[in-house]
Amino acid sequence: MTAVLEVAGLKTHFFTHAGVVKAVDGVDFTVNKGEVMGLVGESGSGKSITGFSILGLIDQPGRIVEGSIRFNGDEIANAPEETLKSIRGNRISMIFQDPMMTLNPVLRIDSQMMEAIFAHEKVSKKVAWERSRHALGLVGIPSPEERLKAYPHQLSGGMRQRVSIAIAFLNKPDLIIADEPTTALDVTIQAQIIHEAQKLTRQTGTAMIWITHDLAVVAGLADRISVMYAGRIVEQGLTDDVIDRPLHPYTVGLLGSVPTANKRGERLFQIEGMTPNMLALPEGCAFAPRCRSASAACKAPPPITHIANRDIRCFNPQAQAAAE
């Protein structure tokens, strides 16, 4: 399998008045062609910042301080704006969380879609319109001709997210970064959108990074899962391995807190404590203060170890604990 994206040692820090926020602090992962990678973590764990770092859209006072991002073999971390602009929306595109907010309320759907084409290609209006219509059809929007003439407020949330997905696939990108694209939708629509995205990645061979805090979503969708905590990936492996036999105590906790039919009537597991303050991360393992298995060794930062077919940052990996 060929790698579309290789991220190594990525560090994105924000230099605020209160101190340095290490939003992303040494992240490594690879996404292969046609593969869906689930990037899971709670709010503030740095998953979205990882996505924006790849696109080079980190605003002041943040910047990529270290690491490499290789896209199709080319280094794009801190690449010149011109290079990044030609990649954005063309080779790597993005789907956002809130479909109510990501479409410009005053522009018609067709102008927003055609604009995405014109930004990267010189084609006639007719060709661009035809491609937009085709793209809307692909994401399962009925009578796309009429939808093209509509304004965003005339469409439902699910419909708008389909439009966003259509825009993301418009230029046949190699990679799509989906930043919690189903969080703002209700569950039935969520399932449809996931189905649609999955179908399209299979058809087009587009790789996808699916950022979410919902393990249940990626369990059925992703080929591989990376779990992020406080700016680092703490566990990374094939979806089945991670879901069935989580090793990192944090993953175990996350999985334990997902309601399932077997746990009916029982109290759900809860990870104690709060997300750490990103300005004052604990020494060593950032999860240690909330961890049940923490030991004296956890005072030092755990290195990446490769065990049981996955990469993990933990001194005390759990064994088979979460299944129960």
Binding site: R88, F96, D98
Partner: peptide, 16 residues
Amino acid sequence: KEYVEAAQCLGLSKTR
């Protein structure tokens, strides 16, 4: 607002 971020992600120029 997010639509501005989305527009940037499409690779549109600043003036646009």
